[in-house]
């Protein structure tokens, strides 16, 4: 994912968030993050915690969401040679409501580790749908399923099936204050062929991420 693409996505989200209008609603706030990361085999397991921030803007039938998280992953398996690494992930969505309870969305996702070779760096385009329901005054629960198209990896390879599932909860606590909880499960069926001659070697990537935080609505 190139820098201009990220700039375009974030700029679009900000543009939606700053437009005047009575139907406009913006929620922004910090989040605590829990995450699990696996790669290639059951021996590469990491768990970690971190922090992040999310911003959601709504304008008429359009909505935009941007999430940035930074998680420190520590090895959780028995392999002693694994080292910790930090992962910064940026997700962005643009959605259009096709019904009061359903919307189509498209966006980007990008995760980069630090140090660079601690894990695979991943970038992809999201295309999917989201269903949401109001379960009470100011309380909304949502479910999201995105297909990650055209994934790119720092270590090369390709993925025929890459999906991202999400569960979201937004509860207005009082006035402008919201409590936000979100779960995202990302499965990338990556295959790699280092030598170029042998058959493709499966090198799947799997991450589950939970975000818990507060948001202030405007």
């Amino acid at each position: 994912m190139t820098r201009p693409a990220w700039g375009l996505a974030i700029g679009a989200a900000c543009a939606l968030g700053t437009q005047p209008g009575s139907a406009q609603r913006v929620t922004i706030g910090p989040q605590f993050v829990l995450a699990s990361y696996r790669e290639v085999s059951s021996g590469l397991q990491y768990q970690g915690a971190g922090f992040g921030g999310a911003a959601v803007a709504r304008w008429r039938r359009f909505s935009a969401e941007a999430v940035v998280t930074r998680v420190t992953f520590n090895p959780s398996g028995s392999t002693a040679t694994l080292k910790s690494f930090d992962a910064t992930q940026i997700d962005a969505w643009l959605a259009y409501d096709i019904a009061p309870y359903a919307s189509l969305e498209a966006g980007l996702t990008h995760r980069s580790p630090s140090p660079e070779f601690g894990a695979q760096s991943v970038g992809a385009v999201r295309v999917g749908a989201r269903a949401s329901s109001e379960i009470g005054p100011g309380a909304t629960v949502s479910f999201r399923a995105d297909y990650l198209a055209a994934p790119q990896f720092s270590g090369g390879g390709h993925a025929s099936l890459s999906l991202d599932l999400g569960l979201g909860l937004d509860v207005r606590l009082a006035g402008r204050l919201h409590a936000i909880a979100a779960y995202a499960f990302q499965h990338i069926d990556r295959k790699d062929n280092p030598g170029g001659t042998a058959p493709d070697t499966p090198a799947p990537i799997q991450q589950s991420l939970a975000r818990l935080g507060l948001g202030v609505g405007f």
Binding site: L34, A35, S36, R38, E39, V40, S41, S42, Q45, Q47, I135, G136, A139, V141, L163, L165, L167, L169, V171, A181, A182, Y183, F185, H187, D189, P202, P204, Q206, S208, L209, A210, L212
Partner: peptide
């Protein structure tokens, strides 16, 4: 979607958010 080659995870993240959603409901 969980890959068999990667083993079964702890579902810690889903448990936290799922429990929050159920409690809210």
């Amino acid at each position: 979607l969980e890959s068999t080659t990667l083993g079964s995870g702890s579902k810690r993240e889903l448990s936290v958010v799922g429990a929050a959603a159920l409690v809210a409901g």
